[in-house]
Write a protein that binds this DNA or RNA. Structure first.
Length: 427
RNA sequence: GGAGCGGUGGCAGAGUGGUCGAAUGCGCCGCACUCGAAAUGCGGUUUACUCGCAAGGGUAACGGGGGUUCGAAUCCCCCCCUCUCCGCCA
């Protein structure tokens, strides 16, 4: 969430930024936040005074007791009763205003970076880079959902039996291909200086709040109600939360972690004709890179992360394009997001396979992830958080299968993966 | 799931009603000594909110919440978590 001080001091900048997102309720919510904030401060100022008075009184009574002046002490006690009542009222008021302020604050999205283009929907995203040759496939080319059935490597019917739609079963070379991709992505990230993390797949409410999934997006996560835990929608959640309520030293930067996890998404209400096959699943595999950075270096890091992701796609020889998301299409918590889309030759569609974002201090403020500047250790500041998929597997698999299929019904494995798969062809 | 122990500052660890935001040790920072370093000595070293142009004040926090009391780290109640043992089990 945005920092209250920033909203107080730079209200115009906040409003301008929110406008770029086409965030309709900006004026209203900002006014509410400032109002609750004002009331909260007034309550605190008075509460502090009352408490100070009560503290002094208690001290005096203590002195009198010690000196045996019991009568005088008793006389003062009545005074403190009324102070106590007043303090209770004020404390309640403080709590209420703080809570109300928070409730509004979490409804306000991040302010887009100045380079973010204005726009309303995915149609307004900017293609900033494109790489690779478009696959030239004949009419014989099959979409991946037909291919996987023919090759018998991924089974949706079995998944339906075990769980339900969107939970595929990977079999034989299909399973091995998954494992190969995961290992390839992890190895590449480690080589790029990331530390591998294996986090829990269930998270508590504090973690969900820290990265922004809670309070509003709980409907998108699977909920283990008995223990009030949530299945992670992405490794971003546990890995970023490693740094919740942490004060880092400036020398700790850059912090670069990578994790492979399965991801679970309810995807409520988002099913349709264009999400056939592997295009959208409830459970899928993803390797995620997460950085915690000094504010001065975070955009450099963002570029580095994009370059890493693009390098992976190039090594897999998948034609892709890089999009700079417009204000209207960006995620709630992001300040700048680049999406990578791969062209899938038989569906003849661009598929999003990665989303790389800088959240600046928006997540860090929720997480309370901060650092001490070297030159001024007292001046503790919020860090910047970033993350990106590197990469999400299902659509990579879909495009690999489609683009690398041959007319006689086989699929060629990209050379970089062969050491991981142990085979060159799926047939 | 049952029983027990515990939860205090960066860490370890004292503190069982007031003068305790908290001893002591370690760590860390600064200074002195030294050619330099080590050792030693001295000083400093939590965070949040808030008032103030500033200097500098105030308040809160000892797992979380509530209560008793003029006054709570300390007493009482509820909850959470760690650890140990038992049970179950990969």
């Amino acid at each position: 969430m945005l920092q209250i001080d920033f909203i107080r001091d730079k209200k115009e900048i906040v409003l301008q930024g929110l406008q770029k997102r086409n965030f309709a309720r900006a004026e209203e919510l900002i006014a509410q936040v400032l109002d609750f904030d004002q009331k909260r401060r007034e309550a605190q100022t008075e509460l502090d005074k009352v408490n100070a008075e009560a503290n002094n009184l208690a001290k005096s009574i203590g002195e009198l007791m010690k000196n045996g002046k019991k009568d005088e002490a008793e006389a003062m006690k009545t005074n403190s009763a009324s102070l106590k009542n007043r303090a209770k009222e004020l404390e309640q008021a403080m709590k209420d205003f703080t809570q109300q302020r928070l409730e509004v604050l979490v409804q306000i999205p991040n302010i887009p970076n100045e380079v973010v283009p204005a726009g309303k929907s995915a149609d307004d995203n900017e293609v900033v880079y494109q790489w690779g040759d478009m696959p030239e496939l004949g009419d014989w080319a099959l979409p991946h959902w037909d291919l996987i059935q023919k090759l018998d490597i991924i089974d949706f019917e079995l998944g339906n039996k075990i769980t339900g739609a969107g939970f595929p079963v990977y079999k034989g070379k299909g399973a091995k291909l998954q494992r190969a991709l995961i290992n390839f992505f992890l190895d590449q990230a480690i080589e790029a200086g990331y530390r591998e993390i294996q986090p829990p797949l269930l998270i508590n409410r504090d973690s969900g709040f820290g990265t922004g999934q809670l309070p509003d997006k709980d409907g998108q996560m699977y909920h283990a109600t008995e223990d009030d835990l949530f299945l992670i929608p992405t490794a971003e959640v546990p890995i970023t939360n490693l740094y919740r309520e942490v004060i880092l030293n400036e020398g700790d930067f850059p912090i670069k972690n990578v994790g492979y996890t399965q991801c679970f998404r309810r995807e409520a209400g988002s099913w349709g004709a264009h999400v056939r096959g592997l295009n959208r699943l409830h459970q899928f595999d993803k390797v995620e890179i997460v950085q915690i950075q000094h504010p001065d270096k975070s955009y450099q890091a963002l570029e580095e992360m994009c370059a890493h992701v693009q390098g992976l796609l190039e090594k897999l020889n998948l034609p892709y394009r890089r999009l700079k998301l417009c204000g209207g299409d960006m995620g709630f918590t992001s300040a700048l997001t680049f999406d990578m889309e791969v062209f899938s030759g038989a569906q003849k569609r661009w598929l999003e396979v990665s989303s790389v974002s800088n959240f600046e201090t928006y997540q860090a403020n929720r997480l309370q992830c901060r650092f001490r500047p070297k030159d001024n250790p007292k001046n503790i500041q919020l860090a910047h958080t970033l993350n990106g998929s590197a990469l999400a597997l299902p659509r990579i698999v879909a495009s690999l299968l489609e683009n690398n299929q041959t007319q006689d019904g086989k699929v060629k494995i990209p050379a970089v993966l062969v050491p991981y798969t142990g085979f060159e062809w799926i047939e």
